[in-house]
């Protein structure tokens, strides 16, 4: 390939300036673009890049979901039953329909159909409103029933049967429950290891003194009475196979450790595993972040509606509608995945 030098440049830029020629400066053409097509393409590319960042933002949450569910499927099996599939399905339909009205709005704006565009944008907005209303209802139920994250999880408010069975009722089958019980079964030594137990020693020693969770309504660890060892036999099954169980005299393990939130008990949905709060932590973070994006999308669509009514858009210039539509569709896309992952666990 011949090298160019200054005397023989490869190409000569003789680019007509958008505002210097022919059709005159289109009011929507920015000064640094040469044509509406270039501007439109750039806008689209920029929007897709932004959508990619949103995908990665939610991707982190999907990762957390995958990890928690893979390691503790029983939590998800148990807890998801508290979600109302009907509301979830209605919300899915609402978003799909609003996606349709949005796509139609883009087509209408491409055809220069101003009134239709405005109408469809309004309908899409209403779809968002409907979605958020249903979400609010669902959230309200959960708050009321104590179905919340972390230490806010309070099964006593569930309103279902609350068998107050002790740890043994959890059976070895609730393997997660074995976490706390296993510690008990292992050694009778009640001393907690000072170095490792900084966080949990306080809780193990005296429940009320857990400074980090003053509002805990349930104890963080199973009570350390030796009677708890009823499930000790089942607990041995939790010992990793490559280690032979050690004699209690060889090991000075703490009686219990950070195994999570053990509440115990039974209700209509079966024995309650440990750490049910994870499911609600995942649920609220994922649907909460999604809800924030729905609100942001509604703000965008509201703004588009105002501009459409004002007559800003035409067959030549509909880019904002197109780009806003892409954002709304992404919000829909995320829900398409959230719905089965959260509501439709068998």
């Amino acid at each position: 390939m011949q090298m160019a030098d200054a005397a023989h440049p490869i190409s000569h830029a003789a680019v007509p300036h958008g505002d210097a020629h022919g059709h005159g400066h289109h009011p929507n053409l920015e000064h640094h673009f040469d044509s509406l097509t270039q501007q439109f393409d750039a806008g689209k590319l920029g929007m897709w890049l932004f959508l990619a960042t949103e995908v990665l933002l939610f991707g982190g949450l999907f990762c957390a979901y995958a990890i928690f569910r893979r390691n503790h499927p029983e939590v998800f099996m148990y807890a998801h039953q508290y979600l109302d599939t009907t509301w979830g399905a209605i919300n899915t339909v609402v978003l799909l329909v609003s996606s349709f009205t949005m796509a139609w709005a883009v087509t209408a704006s491409q055809r220069g159909q101003r009134n239709l565009t405005s109408l469809l944008l309004a309908l899409t907005f209403l779809g968002g409103v409907g979605f958020m209303v249903i979400k609010a209802i669902e959230y309200q139920h959960k708050f009321h029933d104590g179905l919340m994250w972390g230490t806010h999880y309070d099964p006593s408010k569930h309103g279902h049967g609350h068998g107050e069975g002790h740890g043994a009722a959890a059976h070895g089958a609730a393997a997660a429950a074995g976490h706390a019980a296993a510690g008990d079964g292992r050694g009778g030594a009640a001393e907690s290891h000072a170095a490792g137990a900084a966080a949990s020693a306080g809780a193990a020693g005296d429940h009320g003194a857990s400074a980090a969770h003053p509002e805990a309504t349930t104890s963080v660890h199973a009570p350390e009475t030796p009677g708890q060892g009823a499930s000790a036999a089942a607990a041995d099954a939790d010992v990793p196979p490559e280690r032979a169980p050690l004699e209690p005299s060889q090991v000075a393990l703490a009686p219990s450790g950070p195994a999570g939130l053990h509440v115990g008990g039974h209700d209509l949905h079966g024995p309650r595993p440990d750490n049910v709060h994870w499911f609600f932590g995942v649920y609220f973070t994922m649907t909460g972040l999604h809800g924030l994006h729905v609100l942001a999308g509604m703000a965008v669509i509201g703004w588009l509606f105002v501009r459409s009514v004002r007559g800003d858009f035409s067959a030549d210039y509909f880019t904002p509608v197109d780009l806003g539509g892409l954002y709304w569709h992404l919000v829909d896309l995320i829900w398409i995945f959230l719905f089965p992952l959260l509501y439709l666990i068998h």
């Binding site: 994250w149 969770h213 440990d274 932590g281």
Partner: peptide, 10 residues
Amino acid sequence: GIGFFDSELG
């Protein structure tokens, strides 16, 4: 207090 990274909450 979500609890994903807190070993006290599992």
